[in-house]
Design a protein around this nucleic acid. Structure first.
Length: 348
DNA sequence: GACGCGTGGCC
DNA sequence: TGGCCAAGCGT
């Protein structure tokens, strides 16, 4: 049987039951593909279901407030994706009469839709012969064709796509595209390729030349650096002091957090907290002992967060405010601060 | 083309 | 634990 025939057959009997496969529409495809960018399936599944409940169609998403869409994205990371999705929905309503386009150029004109997502929507939702090359498929194809180009480079991905396109079966573009993704996710794994379970192992050039373990080629990732994040824990009655990150911050714009800043690992948290509170405009800052600690990671940074209890005199200056505990909206708080709040809660 | 952008899980 | 990874995109 042909390569494509075996892949599609394998997919038919091995495909996972995932919510976006149950109701395959351009909208569900779009939302799920954006959520799945750099994000694992297990994390996405519950968030996808909740998001679809909250924004069941493109009109509801287009008319939603940005902060509500971002809140629905809470914990998924890469929040630009949420803002792009909402802007994209508005663009679809305004420019395409509310119908998600199937044309590649039209799709690429939507914010957050790049080569992968455009191909995914075209193939999965419209059955067009556009194999979607994500990390999984790049790995599968690099091994299948024994291509030793850097799969992180656009040129390599283009070449792999051109090698795959001739295999797209007539009337089976969606199954072919998704089968490649699924094979990469379930069988042709980065570390342990389960070639014994692979339907195309005997056609795989990497397998035939003993290079499965060394393909695909990719640039080594950058090293992560340790960071100390010192946070102020200021309570007043049943309220806690929070600041809102600037709307134009590149990292987590608009999110609420405990006042503080990142710094080198050697800094003294109480000193940093004092400095931060004084810079906010508070007088008579007193710091006490650390009350919560958490570990977090943001691309290339390993963060050790320490919350230091402090007292201040005077009203909250602009940009920060005392929020009643029962009104702290965890969906609008950074994950780092959420971890600190939870850690404190757990130890009380 | 390199870098910034989040997070959770796994070993 | 730290490194590595996961259905990328925008600049």
């Amino acid at each position: 049987m042909t390569l494509e025939g075996r892949l599609v057959d394998w997919f038919r009997s091995n495909r996972r039951d995932l919510p976006w496969r149950r109701q395959r529409t351009p909208y569900t495809t779009w939302v799920s593909e954006i959520m799945l960018q750099q994000t694992t399936v297990d994390v996405v599944v519950p968030r996808f279901v909740a998001f679809l409940r909250r924004f069941p169609d493109i009109q509801s998403l287009a008319s939603a407030e940005e902060e509500d869409v971002v809140a629905a994205w809470s914990g998924l990371g890469y929040y630009r994706r949420a803002r792009g999705l909402r802007l994209g929905a508005r663009a679809v309503v305004e420019r395409f009469g509310g119908t998600i386009p199937s044309d590649e150029k039209d799709l690429l004109s939507l914010p957050g839709v790049g080569p992968y997502t455009a191909a995914a929507i075209r193939s999965l939702a419209f059955d067009q012969p556009a194999p979607a090359i994500d990390g999984n498929v790049a790995r599968v194809a690099a091994r299948l064709f024994a291509d030793d180009g850097d799969v992180g480079k656009a040129g390599t991905r283009r070449r792999l796509r051109e090698r795959l396109v001739p295999h797209v079966p007539e009337g089976g573009a969606a199954a072919f595209s998704e089968a490649l993704i699924e094979l990469g996710a379930l069988v042709c794994r980065p570390k342990s390729a389960r070639c014994d379970a692979c339907p195309v192992a005997d056609l795989c050039a990497a397998r035939l030349t003993g290079r499965v373990a060394t393909l695909p080629v990719r640039q080594p990732p950058r090293r992560s650096r340790p960071v100390l994040s010192a946070r102020a824990w200021v309570e007043r009655g049943c309220r806690v002091l929070l600041v809102q990150r600037p709307a134009d911050a590149s990292l987590l714009p608009g999110f609420l957090e405990l006042p503080g800043r990142w710094g080198p690992a050697g800094e003294n948290p109480p000193d940093v907290v004092r400095e931060v509170l004084e810079n906010l405009g508070f007088d008579d800052v007193r710091t006490y002992e650390p009350v919560a600690e958490a570990r977090h990671a943001i691309t290339h940074h390993r963060i050790r967060s320490v919350a230091v209890r402090a007292d201040v005199v005077g009203a909250a200056p602009g940009g920060c405010r005392f929020v009643p505990w029962d009104e702290v909206d965890l969906e609008r708080v950074t994950t780092e601060t959420r971890k600190l709040l939870r850690s404190r809660e757990a130890s009380v």
